[in-house]
Design a protein around this nucleic acid. Sequence first.
DNA 1: GTCTATACAATGATAGAC
DNA 2: GTCTATCATTGTATAGAC
Lengths: 203, 203
Amino acid sequence: MTDNEKTPATSTRERILDAFEALLGESGERAATLEAVAGSAGISKGGLLYHFGSKEVLIDGLLARLEMMVALDVAEIHSSEAGPVAHLIRTSPTTGNTLDRALVAVSRLAQASNSRARQALRAANEAWYEAVLETVGDPVLTRTIMLISDGLYYGAAFFPTDDPHPAATFDTAATAHQPDLEGIIALLETLTAIPSRTGVKAP
Amino acid sequence: MTDNEKTPATSTRERILDAFEALLGESGERAATLEAVAGSAGISKGGLLYHFGSKEVLIDGLLARLEMMVALDVAEIHSSEAGPVAHLIRTSPTTGNTLDRALVAVSRLAQASNSRARQALRAANEAWYEAVLETVGDPVLTRTIMLISDGLYYGAAFFPTDDPHPAATFDTAATAHQPDLEGIIALLETLTAIPSRTGVKAP
DNA sequence: GTCTATACAATGATAGAC
DNA sequence: GTCTATCATTGTATAGAC
C-alpha cells in the first residue's frame, strides 16, 4: 500500500483516461471501444480492464476528472483579472487545454444518452452560470453569455481542426467557424456596462 | 411506374426516416441501429434494407431531408415578419418542428465523426449566417446571434424533455436550461438598434 | 414489399497464464 | 500489471422464401 515506487508523470490510469478522452473527442462515442482505448494507451484490452473493471467504471473515471477540473476552473474564474465573461469566451473554443478535452469527451457521452454524463454537464453549466451571474448581475444577460459560450464549445466540438473552407479564407474577417472572439467580448462588455438591463422583462 | 396507387400520407420510406431521426435524437447514434429503426418503423430489418440498401444510404436519406428543410427555412426567414433574429431564436429550441428534429439527428451523426453530416451542418449554418447578416449588417453581431442560436439548439439537444431540477422551479425566472427567450430577443433587438457597432474591432 | 435465416465482424467481458 | 484465449451478444449485410 505504500507508494514508495516511482510514480511516472503519467500513470497508466491517467494515460488510459487520456486515450479515452481523445478518442471520444476526435472520433465519437462509438469509436471509443475498449480495444481502441487500450491500443491508444499502449496496452491490451485485458490490461485496461485491470484498471477499469468495466466500461461504466471507465466512464466514471472520466466524469470524476471533469468534475475536478470544473471546480478548478470555477475557482480560476473568480480570480481572473479579465473578468469572468472574457475568461469564459476566450477559453471556450480552445480545444487545447485539459478542461476542454474532458468537456468535449463528456459531451459525446451525453449525446449517446448517458444520463450520468448529462448530469455532469448540467452541474458544470450551473456552476459557470452562478459564477458569471455573480459579477454580471442580470440573469438574462448571463444566460445569453452562457449560450454564446455553449455555441462556441459545441461548434468547436462539431468542426474540430476544421478543414479550410473553399471560399472566405482570404478576408481579414472571421469565418463562420472562426468567430471573432475579441469582437464578441467587446460586444458583451458593452452590454454589461448598460445599467438598466435588469428590467427587460415584466411578466 | 405510374403512381396510380394511393400514396399513404406517410410512405414507408418516410416512416423509416422518421424513426431513424427520432432514435438518433432521443437515444443517440449508437442506439439507432438498423434493427431498432426497423422495429420503430413497424417493419423488420430486411424490410428496411429493401428501402435503404445500407446504413450509409439511410444516412443519405436523412441528409437530403435536412437539406431540403433548411432551404425552406431560409426562404421563410426572409419573409418572416418578426425579422430573422426573433425567428431564429424562437425556433431554435423547439424540438417540435420537423427542421429541428432533422437538425438534432444530423448533429448526432456529426458527433459520431460522420464527415458528410458535418458538411451538411456546416452548409446549413452558413445559409443561416448569410440570411441573418443580410438584415443585421454587422458580422460580429451576426456571429454572436448565431452562437446563441447554436447554444440553444445544442442545449436542447443535450437536455431533451428535461427532468425538472430539484431547486429553482418555483421562481418566475427562467432556469438554466429554460432560458428566457423573449428576454434574449429583446436584448439582441436592442443591439441591432445600436448603430456604430460595426467598428468594434480595429486590427 | 416484407419476412426469416444466415454469415461475419466487432464489442464488452471473463478466466487464467506469465 | 499485463497478456492471450475464449464467449455471448449484437450490428451490418446477403440470400432467398412468401
